[in-house]
Simulated assay, not measured.
Amino acid sequence: MLRATVTGRIWSTKRLKEVPAGSILEVVVDGSSTRLLAFDPLGCGEGESVIVATGSVAAAWFPGEAPPIDALIIGSIDEAASARTGK
């Protein structure tokens, strides 16, 4: 899993029927310059910190035959544990 920050939304007027309803967001992996396009079933917004699963783990989340998606936002980070504990 990766911690990332949402930097934008990808708009597409055409989509494969295998891709379920949801947004595709551009995220930057924290601590790097790596950018990913991630499927977002949660409704996250720009600037939000998120948890991203990649590869076969992301694809396995979808029921039936997996769509061609290899990055999935699986959580929205409200507060890092270090912020709560002061560490």
Rank of each mutant, 00 (worst) to 15 (best):
A60I: 00
S33Q: 12
E48A: 14
A38F: 05
T34M: 12
T54D: 01
I51Y: 05
V27K: 03
G43W: 07
S49D: 14
I24W: 07
L25S: 02
F39G: 02
C44P: 00
A53V: 09
E26N: 11
S33V: 08
I24D: 00
I51K: 06
V27H: 02
G55E: 06
L25P: 01
G45L: 13
S49I: 04
P63W: 02
V57R: 11
S33D: 14
S49V: 10
P41D: 08
G31C: 04
L25Q: 10
S32W: 07
L37Q: 10
S32F: 06
V27D: 02
E48N: 05
V29S: 03
S23F: 12
V50Y: 13
I51D: 05
A38Y: 03
A59W: 07
L42K: 11
V27N: 01
D30V: 14
A38E: 02
V28K: 14
P41L: 08
T54P: 02
S32L: 07
T34I: 14
P63D: 04
A53S: 15
L25G: 00
L36N: 01
G43Y: 10
S23H: 13
G55C: 00
G45H: 14
A58Y: 10
L36G: 02
E26C: 03
A59V: 02
E46D: 12
L25R: 15
A58C: 07
G43F: 09
T34C: 05
A58N: 04
F62I: 09
V29A: 12
L36S: 01
V52D: 04
L42A: 06
A60Y: 07
C44E: 13
S23W: 11
A60C: 01
L37M: 09
V57Q: 10
V27P: 00
G45K: 15
P63R: 09
S49W: 07
V50E: 12
F39D: 03
A60M: 07
G43A: 11
F39H: 05
L42I: 13
T54Q: 00
S33A: 12
V52L: 11
P63H: 03
S33G: 11
V52W: 10
L25E: 04
C44N: 14
A53R: 10
T54Y: 00
P41W: 05
F39M: 08
G43C: 08
V29L: 05
W61S: 13
V50T: 09
F39K: 05
A58D: 05
G45I: 13
G43N: 08
E26V: 14
I24F: 15
R35L: 11
I51P: 00
L37N: 09
D30A: 12
S23L: 13
S56T: 12
V52Y: 10
P63Q: 03
V29F: 02
F62G: 04
L25T: 01
